[in-house]
Simulated assay, not measured.
Amino acid sequence: MHLRKLMTGISLAGLLLLGGCSSKKADDNKAVKHVGVLQVVQHPSLDKAYKGFKKGLKEEGYVEGKNLKIDYQNAQNSQDNLKSMSDKLVKEKSDLILGIATPAAQSVANATQDIPVVVTAVTDLKAAKLVNSNAKPGRNVTGTTDMVSIKRQIDLLLSIVPKAKTIGIMYNAGEANSKIQADMATAVLKNAGVKVLIKTANTTNDVQQVTETLASKVQGIFVPTDNTFDSAASVVGKVVKEKKVPLVAGSTDQVKTGGLASIGIDYEALGEQTGKMAAKILAGKAKPADMPVEKAHDMRLVVNKKMAKALGIDPKSIKAPKN
């Protein structure tokens, strides 16, 4: 009897010990935050935004492999991939989902109205129907905008080619954020008394032909932040260099690869801002509905000196417009 009681006691103690371990393990698992990421396509600006996002989370105490698990998905500019990947991230019950660039942000937002969503590299969240307003989103979505001053970009281009009679604009008409910027640029140019010629490309395969056609008819080109043209920046750069046409881009990364100048943002810094916003949501300190959309903290002039010299322009002569 004593032996049986002793064995029963040991068994109960063992069960309690196992139960305690299971409970601790469950608590540990609960402490790990699951973040889904959907990026529309791979190119430098968006890659930097993702890198910055992870940096921002880490600075706020969320470290991959410790208390953070990230499921990264890249749609490679496929609408079918965007939908299936969004559904996957929602089905996995992510604690938060990041959408990088407008198409990815819209896809994720359409897939869930419950899971918190933050977005980055989106030009106009309200126009993209992601928020009720930039000041008070009112839904499960918030984030950062990569909108830059289009007027300053155009003023920069006109300061480089002050005698220009016609300025070209290239973008993918299928990207809502690009069309918004193109329309704004058109208005600024017309107000300055400059003729505008617009060409669009639906895929990267169309970019070379579009650039060659436009470059032969204009004295300068403006390209807004556009995923299609960013992805083919080197192709664009080769053409404008041969045609001797200055190109101002909305993206500083495109300038480094195939443009002349830009007053743009640092996408890694923008991603970092987004990561810190996400950290507040994960910590339960804020909700997307109440978090105003944030703009980049700083803008900077970037000049491609090699391109400038190839075009016969003194890099030092290129200055950022004051207004």
Rank of each mutant, 00 (worst) to 15 (best):
S78V: 08
Q79T: 13
N132L: 11
A75E: 05
E64N: 01
N134V: 07
F53G: 08
A135I: 08
G138E: 10
K93Y: 12
A127F: 10
A109M: 05
K54V: 11
V117S: 08
K136M: 03
S84I: 13
F53E: 02
K55E: 15
F53T: 10
K66N: 00
V118F: 08
L96F: 05
A121R: 01
S107Y: 00
S94K: 04
D80E: 14
V90A: 05
P103D: 01
N67L: 00
P116S: 06
N77M: 09
A111K: 11
L57I: 10
N81K: 09
L98C: 12
T112G: 00
I115Q: 10
V63R: 05
G56L: 12
L96I: 04
D71M: 02
F53H: 07
E60G: 12
N74S: 12
L125S: 07
K66L: 09
N110W: 05
G56C: 02
D124P: 06
M85A: 08
K88S: 14
V63D: 11
K55Q: 15
P103L: 01
Q113C: 04
V122P: 06
L125A: 10
A121S: 13
N81W: 01
V131D: 02
Q73W: 09
F53V: 07
E59P: 12
S86M: 00
D71V: 06
L68P: 05
T112Q: 13
Q79K: 11
L68Q: 04
A127W: 02
I97S: 09
S84D: 02
D87F: 05
K51E: 15
E59A: 14
G56H: 10
I97A: 04
K88R: 13
R139I: 07
T120R: 06
Q113W: 04
K91H: 04
L82Q: 06
N67R: 01
V118L: 15
K54P: 06
T123W: 10
D80P: 06
V122S: 05
L125F: 03
N77A: 15
R139N: 07
V117G: 09
D124S: 06
G65A: 03
K51V: 13
N77D: 15
K55L: 14
S86D: 05
T123H: 01
L68G: 11
V131M: 02
K54G: 06
E92V: 13
D80C: 03
K93D: 15
K88M: 13
K69E: 14
G52Q: 11
A135W: 00
F53K: 04
T123V: 14
V119M: 06
Q106A: 01
G65M: 08
N81F: 08
E60S: 13
V118N: 09
A104E: 12
V122M: 08
K126Y: 06
D114T: 15
G65V: 00
A127Y: 03
L89S: 10
V63E: 15
V131G: 02
A105N: 13
G99V: 06
D114Y: 12
A128P: 00
K58A: 15
R139C: 00
P103N: 12
K51P: 12
T112I: 07
K91E: 14
A109P: 01
E60T: 12
T120A: 11
S86I: 01
N81M: 07
A128G: 06
T112K: 08
G138H: 10
